[in-house]
Design a protein around this nucleic acid. Structure first.
Lengths: 147, 147
DNA sequence: ATTATGTCTATAGAGTTAGTAGTGTTTTGA
DNA sequence: TCAAAACACTACTAACTCTATAGACATAAT
């Protein structure tokens, strides 16, 4: 698995929206881009993907903006990564259809990539954005306390 | 972590050399390329990298060829991957020097990438080529038995 | 109407990947 | 001695991906 800027931005955008979830608020892409320091037109494409994936929703027109389409508790980090980056496998040969290995019985590396994919999934599929919201809140609190 | 063709070829080349290790034999790049079905000039670059990394050695001239520079028991899959592909981290921000996150205290994703990197390392740094040689031998045996 | 927003498609520049080409250098052995 | 067979090294290219930008369009509020 490799995380590109697009994936990184997507995760940060969802987290930012999650931090504002619940109070009925809506955030414009302009605001989001400024808060996260992301080029606005690039963020736009990311948000469109997130919308098509069903994770965010938008209201058009004046007073429009973006908001989470579901509760942060139901969105897992792994889902966003898979939507934006594709499969978490380190190499394509881990899926059954692949026939690149001349002798599949001999391709002893396949099992390794499957193990890596599973270990990765076990992490990213068990972290919800609700958890991240709580961690973020606690972290910024403790930072404030230090001042 | 993403495995490119180069990394894939490197692992297969080392395994093939490991299967022939011990009996003092040497394999030409021509042979290796044919056995592994890899473009010879591409394999050449891979082998040069492996040589510079100290994993394989070569004898030049007629009767020359490649052989493992160390025992398969001392070479781990993770070493080859890191040599060819670079760090295992899914994104660059996991190392301390990185300052891309505006507020490092708030970048709650960093811990996730560190966890993924650790889980990946725990797998690939604990598999030696000796183990893979044994597995390959056993697998091809059982395949033969089925015939 | 005007303005502020999201929607969509196209494109461009930089970098990466996979593969190819050509020219060395070294060693063997006839 | 010299030709053949092998490794060594550098350069190049076509295709692809990634990041970012541009511009035309659609929608909603005032």
């Amino acid at each position: 698995m490799k995380i590109t800027y697009k994936g990184d931005y997507a995760l940060k955008a969802v987290l930012e929206l999650a931090l504002n979830h619940g109070n009925g608020s809506i955030i414009t892409i302009h605001d989001l881009a400024k808060r996260l320091d992301i080029p606005i037109k690039f963020l736009e494409q990311v948000l469109l993907d997130l919308k098509r994936g069903g994770y965010v929703a938008a209201r058009r027109g004046k007073l429009g903006g973006y908001f989470l389409a579901k509760s942060p508790a139901t969105i897992k980090v792994g889902e966003i990564i898979r939507l934006i980056e594709g499969p978490v496998e380190p190499i394509a040969c881990t899926n059954e259809e692949y026939s690149g290995c001349k002798d599949i019985y001999k391709c002893v590396f396949r099992g390794i990539w499957q193990d890596v994919a599973k270990a990765t999934s076990d992490i990213i599929d068990n972290i919800t954005f609700e958890y991240l919201v709580n961690r973020t809140a606690r972290q910024s609190m403790s930072v404030n306390y230090q001042i």
